[in-house]
Every structure is written in structure tokens, then in C-alpha cells.
Amino acid sequence: MTTFTRGFHGRRRGEDDRLPPGQYLAEDFPVLSAGPTPHVPLDRWEFTIDTEAGQTHRWTWQELTALPYEEPVVDIHCVTSWSKLGTTWRGVSLDVLFEDVESTADYALVYSYGGYTTNLPLDDLMDGKAWIAYRYDGEDLTPSHGGPARLLVPHLYFWKSAKWVHGIRLLTEDWPGFWETAGYHNYGDPWREQRYADD
């Protein structure tokens, strides 16, 4: 296991430095959802990576949670303007899951139980920037926060951190997801305030 901390760089940065433009600090953890909460039994849960060549890599719940995990501490930023600093997670780095995946794709479409999708460049999932997270704040991730497992990609607005994650499809062409087809920004960098399509 690897444990490390992000968001704290030796000296603890001031809260103001860590708040992207247009965001306010939330003390609680608001629950956002575009539909009913899926309840997936762990013995039927699986995570898949589908490559552009048609290969499928699969992990059961037992297989996923047996992999080396990390415990990132990260700031998260919701497009509805709340941010939460120093949130603690446990999850498997996408670098671990992609170790044996052969792909030249540039794009990823993340899909969830319940039908949600979101897209991002594959590079944004690699190099220690993204996890499949299954614990939050020392507890199993609850269904309302996306449990049993969600994508965690904290450098983008939090709608990219798909709750109830089911898999990732690798694509040679970009395929906009649920909010990206309804007026939200295709990339969603909170530091450049990329909220809506034309931002």
C-alpha cells in the first residue's frame, strides 16, 4: 500500500489559495444526483475497462479491493460552486488498473450504474490524478456519495468524478457525457472556471 497526501505542500497553504474562482467553502458534503440511487450488490458489482480494440478488462469487488490502494487527501470542487478541502479517500489508482491495458486511445467515457456518463481525456486519468475510490473519511463509501465505488478525479469539477462507477470505455474520438451534452463544459477545469460549454 502507498499512502500519500495531496493538497498540502509542506507548509499548509491558506484556504483562500485553495479555492478556485467563484467557489465557496462547504462545511458539509452536499449530495448531488441526477437520478435515483442505484444499489448494486457487491457480489454482482464489477468494474470494466473496454479498449478501442474491443478488449475488456474486468475486476470483481474482491479483485478491486485486493489491489494496492492509496489514501489521497484532496480538495474537491463542485460546479454548483461549493468546494470542500482536505477530503480523505481510499481507492485504487487508475495507473494500477491500466497497467496491463494496451491502448492508443486519447479519450475516455466513464459510465455508471444507473446510466450516468462523463467524458475526459485519458491523460487526465493517468499519472496519479485519478482513483476508483471506495472509502471516504474512514468509512465505506455510502450509496448517496456514489458507493460502492466512484471515480475520483479531483483536479476537474466534481461531476467528472462519476458516482456508482461501472467502467471506462476507451475511444479514439471524444464522446461527450451526460452533463457535457447539456450545456456543461467538455473539460471542466475549476481553476479556469470552465463551467459551461462556452467558458
Partner: peptide, 24 residues
């Protein structure tokens, strides 16, 4: 569903999305 980045209206029969509205 309004606790979301937009309004998502779903069918009471099958829960699929019927209408979405985002206001920028």
C-alpha cells in the same frame, strides 16, 4: 431531480430521462 448541476426530469414509469434543463 434538482439537487444536480441542472434539472433532470424522469419518467415515473421507467425512470429514464425525459427532459433536462441547464441554465447558464
Amino acid at each position: 431531480y434538482d439537487r444536480a448541476p441542472g434539472l433532470v426530469a424522469r419518467c415515473p414509469g421507467c425512470e429514464e430521462v425525459v427532459l433536462r434543463l441547464v441554465r447558464s
